[in-house]
Amino acid sequence: MWFKNLQIFQLKDTENFSSTDLIAKLPEHPLRECGSQDEFTFGWMPLIRSSEQWAISSNQCMLIRAGKEEKVLPTAVVREELEAKVAEIEIVEGRKVGRKEKADIKEELVFTLRPRAFSKRSDIWAYIDTKAKLVVLNSTNAGMTEQLFKLLQTTLGSFAMVPLQAQVSPASIMTDWLMKNEVPASLETGDECEIQDASEDKAKIRFKSLEPLSEDVTRHLSQGMSVKNLALRWSEKMSFVLNDDLTLKKVKFDDTLKENAFNDSQGGTLSDMDANFALMSLTIRDFFESYQLWFEIADE
């Protein structure tokens, strides 16, 4: 399991957190199928479908997986049914249907159609690093993040994690890196960059297959634009696109790490996952030490 996105939170009150308690309670809050009128359900999932393995622990890190099942009711279907119903009322009763009545009809149609809608599942992987006091998510989706946080609180009774708080704007720091050609020694710039101006409409320019330190980019920065995201490579171990909200996307771990994980595995899906997770979590722990310094992230 190699994460492709990274959203990092800091774990508070680690003294009252017990990974043993969490592992024991995961099966008590499983993902269940949507009922006839459920918009969605959210719960824990085994790491591998149809297995009883709910977590993997390695180097004071614990890997877990949650899932969401939601009813998919295509907008076009609802719109078509609504238009037909409104037209029928207007023809039969000879009057216009107002906005509020139309909203009420739509709500009733959704209630009627939802039991016949098909369900789809999606998942979110995360791990808790009690040594580094981090919670790391393989997602930058705000909705899934919120549901995962709520599920952790429900499962444990309380769970305190907070977003990373940079003392200086990440956008201004990345802008300075490019303007002054002073990227940290452990980083190399990639070939992708997006910049944004400070106006109300926040106009953006995206550069691809172009060195971010080139004059094409720095000229715009000198005119007041700032870096919104930037492709980087860290210590020849991982590459990523760093966003101004401190999330990382398009994360790719070096092939050497993956080869080492393959050599450490005893074979089999769970063993492969365990070996991958061990190396990935240690790499991210090391990375976070540098990350914290670059953006002056306060310790919790």
Rank of each mutant, 00 (worst) to 15 (best):
K258N: 11
E289P: 01
Y291D: 08
L282M: 08
K106Y: 03
M45G: 06
T283F: 02
F40S: 13
S239Y: 02
E289K: 14
F253L: 05
A275C: 03
Q10H: 08
T130A: 03
V251G: 00
I48Y: 04
P30Q: 12
I195E: 04
E182A: 14
T14K: 15
K249F: 07
R219F: 09
W177M: 04
K85R: 15
S58D: 12
K252H: 08
S271Y: 03
T256H: 07
V135A: 09
S222A: 14
E259P: 05
K180G: 00
F42M: 11
R79I: 07
L109V: 09
E259N: 13
E39L: 11
C193H: 13
R49C: 09
K133R: 13
I297Y: 07
P212V: 13
F118A: 06
A203P: 01
E300C: 00
L178V: 08
E296V: 11
K68F: 00
N141V: 14
F288R: 08
T283H: 01
W44R: 10
E211Y: 09
M161T: 03
G98Y: 02
D197M: 00
T218F: 03
W125Q: 05
F207D: 04
R233K: 15
R65M: 05
E33H: 05
W177Q: 08
L113R: 01
L178Q: 08
L82D: 04
K180A: 13
L31S: 01
A275P: 11
T247M: 12
F118W: 14
K71S: 07
S169E: 07
A198H: 07
K106D: 01
E146P: 01
N5L: 08
K237V: 02
F295Y: 12
K258C: 00
K68I: 10
F295G: 09
S139Q: 11
C34Y: 10
A142R: 07
N263L: 15
R219W: 03
A126I: 02
L279N: 01
N16E: 01
E188V: 03
P30L: 13
A203V: 13
P163G: 12
R99V: 12
A278V: 05
Y291Q: 10
N5R: 15
E15C: 07
A117S: 12
L156G: 04
F253N: 08
E101K: 05
L213H: 06
M273N: 02
I128A: 11
L213A: 14
E192L: 04
D21G: 10
E33D: 08
A166W: 06
E80A: 13
I48T: 10
V77L: 15
Y127C: 02
A84I: 09
L134V: 05
K12M: 14
S186F: 00
E259R: 12
M238P: 00
D244H: 12
S226D: 07
V97K: 12
L282K: 13
N229G: 06
A87F: 05
I297T: 10
Q10D: 04
S290H: 08
R206G: 04
Y291W: 15
V227R: 00
A171M: 01
N5P: 05
K131T: 10
E289V: 14
L6H: 02
V183A: 09
